[in-house]
């Protein structure tokens, strides 16, 4: 070919088509070739150092690829970072372990850590019923207000989370006449607006409501000298906050008729808080953090 090259001395490869189309021999610049070979070397070295090649599955190692000489893996890196994180958390966790919820609240830094940490626990365990910010849901109490069925002190909150709660109110559809139920429902509605009548109070006492709701109908049976209250978890009927949505006359009438958590009564109100501590769902540390968190939602006492 070279002897009859029609374009001699032109740096072509000797391949000529259609009279004058020819392939020139212009190699890429040297720096480009260096970069090209360097990247191939990089690829080989990378393949040796890091996991790269698929392999038949090795049951002993639980892996189906080459390990690489560095022994690096994403999981190892993840575990290392997690260990780092746990080390940072450990100092706080250790202090929380040795302190009571009340003492945690005294330490601004620790309180901040506890609230941040418990926010996750609250989201996982509590928010399904009580709402993401403790705003409650129909049938499930608001935790951000200051109305507590079982008391809003740190100790009472701890008790509620650990042991759970189950409210009880008898169904009165067979023991009271519809007319009596109606009068009681009107009485408690008025009571919440501060307009209770003496006749209403008389019926309230006569039908034994005070046994659970207390002589003042505020859900308190008696107050101890240290400020603690004795309660069976009956609702405070004197305030504007209703245990069951939407509240008011109709709700009250329904609750009096069908009661709360009455076995065998169709349509009874359902009000159960699971025992998170007793069932082992949450450990003591998590509960302690949640106590602080719930207490700080806005209504802790």
């Amino acid at each position: 070919m070279a002897e009859n090259n029609p374009f001699p001395g032109e740096n072509n490869t000797g391949h000529v088509w259609d009279d004058n189309l020819r392939e020139l021999n212009n190699p890429p610049p040297r720096w480009w070739m260096i970069a090209f070979w360097a990247s191939i070397i990089w690829w080989i070295v990378y393949g040796l150092l890091y996991p790269m090649w698929p392999m038949p599955y090795q049951p002993a190692e639980g892996k189906g690829y080459t390990q690489g000489f560095l022994g690096w893996s994403q999981m190892k890196e993840y575990e290392e970072s997690l260990a780092q994180l746990e080390a940072v958390r450990a100092q706080y966790e250790e202090r929380i372990r040795n302190l009571t919820p009340a003492e945690i609240l005294q330490d601004p830094g620790l309180k901040q850590y506890t609230l941040a940490s418990a926010k996750v626990l609250f989201g996982d365990n509590c928010s399904a019923c009580h709402g993401s910010g403790g705003q409650g849901n129909p049938g499930f109490p608001v935790l951000a207000d200051d109305d507590w069925l079982y008391g809003g002190t740190l100790a009472k909150i701890q008790e509620s989370i650990t042991n759970g709660r189950k409210g009880v109110m008898p169904a009165h559809k067979s023991t009271l006449s519809p007319e009596e139920i109606d009068r009681l429902a009107r009485f408690v509605t008025n009571l919440s607006q501060g307009k209770a009548t003496e006749a209403g109070w008389a019926l309230f006492r006569a039908k034994g409501c005070i046994a659970c709701h207390g002589p003042k109908a505020d859900g308190v049976l008696s107050r101890l000298p240290n400020g603690d209250i004795i309660t069976v978890g009956a609702a405070n009927l004197t305030d504007g906050i209703w245990r069951f949505e939407p509240g008011g006359y109709e709700s009250a009438k329904y609750t009096i008729t069908y009661g709360v958590n009455q076995p065998g009564v169709e349509g009874t109100r359902n009000a159960v808080m699971p025992a998170f501590g007793k069932t082992g769902k949450l450990d003591e540390q998590s509960i302690k953090k949640l106590v602080v968190y719930v207490h700080e939602l806005g209504g802790g006492q």
Partner: peptide, 18 residues
């Protein structure tokens, strides 16, 4: 401003925001 709940009614009828 706390979004959930936007506000809370307290036992004495007053409104609280977080």
């Amino acid at each position: 401003h706390e979004r959930a709940p936007l506000f809370v009614t307290l036992s004495d009828g007053s409104i609280q925001n977080k």
